[in-house]
Design a protein around this nucleic acid. Sequence first.
DNA 1: AGAGAATATTCAGCACACGAAACATTCTGC
DNA 2: GCAGAATGTTTCGTGTGCTGAATATTCTCT
Lengths: 162, 162
Amino acid sequence: MAHGGGSVQQRGDIDRIVETILYLYTESRRVTKTQAREHGLTGPQISALKILEAMGDLSLTELSGKMSARNSTITGIVDRMERDGLVQRERSLSDRRVVLIRPTDKGRAVAKAVPVSAMEIFATALGGLPTGDRRELRRILGSLADRVRDEIAARGDEDTKL
Amino acid sequence: MAHGGGSVQQRGDIDRIVETILYLYTESRRVTKTQAREHGLTGPQISALKILEAMGDLSLTELSGKMSARNSTITGIVDRMERDGLVQRERSLSDRRVVLIRPTDKGRAVAKAVPVSAMEIFATALGGLPTGDRRELRRILGSLADRVRDEIAARGDEDTKL
DNA sequence: AGAGAATATTCAGCACACGAAACATTCTGC
DNA sequence: GCAGAATGTTTCGTGTGCTGAATATTCTCT
């Protein structure tokens, strides 16, 4: 009863939304992994191959950007893919600090063999929503992401005090 | 392939939605980690403490359910928390297969010291949405999660073929 | 009661994922 | 042209997170 500005209702919505997003992410990751496994690789490895296939050879930093992970993480992934003969490392001629990652023939073949979307299960579920809901969802999530970006930028400024 | 083929518009919405959910999850996880760090713990450790604080002692399986992770993962997290004096393990009297996880005084103190939600940044952003949008988001995401659950159940049946 | 199924936890091995530090190479200012 | 800043990559240590196997305990059925 005693609460200001409908905060209880709001809080419940927020908790449920956060919970649902975590659930959706976790499940989709599991599905991706399972699918990758059928081809003898891992989720991130499929992603990397797909990106390289689509965009051509990339430097390690460029690849880590596309995968929203740190360079040190991608180094490990590339190490294992190189060990398994899926990609090669090659020093750039123009800037010798740079290492270019290039799929081998085997890597390219595997990339082609795996179905397009790693998020297939998501796509199926989203396809089942009414069109209006799907459009609304896109709009609201987009607006939410913008707000999160702003929040992060604001906090980032505060943290610039090392 | 021969699924109910969707329009280009639909495909665009789907891709954008998936992309946004991944972004929201990744960022919130980073923020949580940073915040936990200021108190000398990790993200999952804060989550575990908060859950135990709110729900009382839980078995390892119950805790892993709440955190949507596998038992083997939670074993490791509890190991490190026990090492750091944040929780204790205690064999259940009623069912001796069960280990109950209980926060220590120190663990409880830390749980109280950390701001309410591990997803604070999310909460802030969600709070900034118009109330109607927030309600819509909850409704649509809930419906989406139900569909994903159904999909997984359906696939699970197919995969029952070891 | 006893065999076998079911449940709860742990352990071992692998693959991310991150931050910090070490290195090499390139760029900048002077 | 050269000292120092900036950039690109790797290495190291820690912490998840998963699967599969091992172990212990409890439940079920006869």
